[in-house]
Computed example of a mutant assay.
Amino acid sequence: MRLFPVLFSLIALPAFATAYDRPIPQAQSATAEFWYAIACLTLLASLFAVRWLVNRR
């Protein structure tokens, strides 16, 4: 039981660790921009619909 911490510390040596490679963000495609625009317009339309329903009350 006393060997477990020693074994685990030997396994997890920093010399075996690889450097962290940050992911590079990819550019948006035209299709993604189109669907984002549709989602924004839908959100605005739903906000105006809620405003109209609340003011009608």
Rank of each mutant, 00 (worst) to 15 (best):
16 F>I: 08
16 F>R: 08
16 F>L: 11
16 F>N: 07
17 A>E: 02
17 A>W: 05
18 T>E: 14
18 T>W: 11
19 A>H: 07
19 A>R: 05
19 A>K: 09
19 A>G: 09
20 Y>D: 02
20 Y>A: 10
20 Y>G: 04
20 Y>L: 10
20 Y>K: 07
21 D>W: 04
22 R>I: 00
22 R>G: 08
23 P>L: 02
23 P>M: 01
23 P>W: 05
23 P>D: 05
24 I>E: 04
24 I>V: 13
24 I>K: 09
24 I>C: 00
24 I>Q: 07
24 I>T: 11
25 P>G: 02
25 P>V: 01
26 Q>A: 11
26 Q>D: 01
27 A>G: 02
27 A>Y: 02
28 Q>P: 03
28 Q>A: 15
28 Q>V: 04
29 S>V: 06
29 S>K: 03
29 S>D: 06
29 S>N: 07
30 A>Y: 05
30 A>D: 11
31 T>L: 09
31 T>Q: 12
31 T>A: 14
32 A>W: 01
32 A>Q: 14
32 A>P: 00
33 E>L: 15
33 E>V: 04
33 E>G: 07
34 F>Q: 11
35 W>C: 00
35 W>F: 15
35 W>L: 10
36 Y>A: 13
36 Y>C: 03
36 Y>R: 11
36 Y>G: 04
36 Y>L: 09
37 A>W: 13
37 A>N: 10
37 A>E: 13
37 A>T: 11
38 I>A: 12
38 I>H: 03
38 I>P: 03
39 A>V: 05
39 A>F: 09
39 A>R: 02
39 A>L: 07
39 A>H: 02
39 A>E: 05
40 C>K: 14
40 C>R: 05
41 L>C: 12
41 L>Q: 10
41 L>T: 11
41 L>I: 15
41 L>Y: 14
41 L>A: 15
41 L>E: 03
41 L>D: 09
41 L>N: 13
42 T>H: 01
42 T>C: 12
42 T>L: 14
43 L>V: 14
43 L>F: 15
43 L>A: 13
43 L>K: 01
43 L>C: 10
44 L>G: 12
45 A>R: 08
45 A>T: 14
45 A>K: 02
45 A>H: 05
45 A>Y: 12
45 A>P: 02
46 S>R: 07
46 S>T: 08
47 L>C: 14
47 L>W: 11
47 L>M: 15
49 A>W: 04
49 A>G: 13
49 A>Q: 05
49 A>Y: 06
50 V>Y: 11
50 V>H: 08
50 V>K: 06
51 R>D: 01
51 R>N: 10
51 R>Q: 09
52 W>H: 11
52 W>R: 15
52 W>K: 12
52 W>M: 12
52 W>I: 13
53 L>H: 09
53 L>K: 14
53 L>N: 06
53 L>V: 10
53 L>E: 09
54 V>Q: 06
54 V>P: 00
54 V>M: 12
54 V>G: 01
55 N>W: 08
55 N>V: 06
56 R>V: 00
56 R>T: 06
56 R>K: 15
56 R>I: 02
